[in-house]
Design a protein around this nucleic acid. Structure first.
Length: 370
RNA sequence: GGGUCGGUGGCAGAGUGGUCAAAUGCACCUGACUGUAAAUCAGGCGUCUUCGGACUUCGGGGGUUCAAAUCCCUCCCGGCCCA
């Protein structure tokens, strides 16, 4: 078994995910180290706030530094000096995002995703097989199969086609995955875990169809794919809950790209176990900091945020969050962090991201403490 | 003392008769950010406003003109050159 449920409470659960780099208590949050780095932070800093796994990206690392290079250095763990578990995203979402923002940047065909490099305009074809090969070359411990996400305002027909393609691609990914396991002489104890991605947008029957298709293909875990908020930005609560119910209880459920603290909590409450999001790091860089208010279980407002650049903190000589044990909060004042932002000292963004990650880690610790 | 160039909103700096409450950048005040084309992006930034506008601004004062940041006179201040 790769996943053990330790305790259940209604739909939510805590558990242990077994990876070849060690056991991970669920639920857990993974910061995004898209380009083999959590922006601005060292691996030592990440360890101090309790980061366990993180997420690297197939698309970005394939383009730069490239896979020949990555093989030379012996994989992304060695390259980035991180010995903990790593999950790689397949690149499907990046291609989707690229095309969605600018249709000239690529297209989705049955063979795979064709896209233009944002670095030099060169054309690339990312097939399901290639996405898996790249992730093996990266040497990650958890990988995601190539999927076909669509914007939530797409028609049902578009989503139906995307779901069926995602399932067909899943089979091709699975076949390639099995080939790589054999070719690389990996065992159940040393192989990475494979996560399928449930697509279907806002349509329940499509989400269900996708989940069933992926289950037939067979993955170690299953993810919520696409965007989990509607076009107005509202959290799709019922869809998140229903999709979890389509996934076997014994499989880890990965809420891709989620999210805000309240979104994470809502997902956890309906059975999701794994999370990743750019929010703590990006918003930290942009000066928005998370403040612990109360435990999630209290039922009260459990967090607030401040924009550290706001004038009201100019002479605030208290810590960002007096209850926080991170380096930022135990060392510096709000006034100082604001000063760093005002003068554009990179240390400010770094300290902010570090603190926000600590907040997210505390939130997860709180959720695991049923 | 003579000559010359110049004084524009917190700063820098456009504009040189009407389309100017005055470009642009910075600063300042807010907001956004959900599998990172984001150390990014958006809005605001004279005063008042029933959001239609109204009113006071481009060194000071005076003048020309239907109309002046823009032209003329004068004063004040600064840079440079000559003595």
């Amino acid at each position: 078994m790769i996943f053990d449920i330790v305790q259940k409470n209604n739909l939510s659960r805590t558990g242990i995910l077994h990876t070849c780099k060690g056991d991970l208590p669920t639920p857990f949050f993974m910061p995004d180290a898209t380009r083999a780095s959590v922006r601005g932070l060292t691996v030592e800093q990440l360890k101090t706030v309790g980061v366990l796994p993180m997420v690297v990206n197939t698309y970005h690392l394939y383009l730069q530094p490239g896979m020949d290079f990555m093989q030379k250095v012996g994989g992304v763990h060695a390259f980035m000096q991180w010995d903990g578990p790593l999950l790689s995203d397949s690149g499907g979402y990046q291609v989707y995002s690229l095309i969605h923002k600018n249709a000239k940047m690529g297209e989705i065909t049955e063979e795979g995703a064709i896209f233009k490099s944002v670095l030099d305009g060169s054309r690339h074809l990312l097939t399901p097989e290639k996405a898996i090969q790249i992730q093996f070359d990266l040497g990650v411990d958890m990988m995601v199969l190539l999927d076909d996400p669509r914007p939530n305002n797409s028609s049902q027909d578009v989503f139906a086609a995307a779901v069926r393609r995602t399932v067909r691609w899943a089979q091709r990914c699975r076949d390639e995955f099995d080939r790589q396991i054999v070719a690389r002489g990996l065992t159940d104890a040393t192989r990475p875990l494979l996560f399928g991605v449930v697509q279907g947008g806002p349509f329940f029957d499509l989400r269900q169809e996708c989940a069933e298709g992926l289950i037939a293909v067979g993955c170690d875990g299953y993810s919520f794919g696409g965007r989990h908020v509607d076009m107005e930005g509202n959290f799709m609560e019922e869809m998140i809950a229903k999709t979890a119910s389509y996934i076997p209880e014994g499989a880890p459920r990965f809420a891709l790209g989620i999210g805000t603290p309240e979104d994470i909590v809502r997902c956890h409450n309906v059975g999701w176990d794994m999370f990743d999001c750019v929010i703590p790091t990006r918003e930290g860089r942009h000066g928005r900091l998370f403040i612990w208010e109360d435990g999630v279980k209290s039922g009260n407002t459990f967090y607030s945020t401040i924009n550290i650049g706001n004038a009201q903190y100019r002479e605030d000589f208290t810590p960002i969050d007096p209850t926080c044990d991170c380096y930022t909060c135990t060392t510096y004042t709000r006034a100082y962090i604001q000063h760093l932002f005002r003068v554009k000292e990179p240390l400010g963004a770094q300290m902010a991201a570090l603190h926000n990650l600590r907040y997210f880690m505390r939130l997860m610790e709180d959720l695991r403490r049923v």
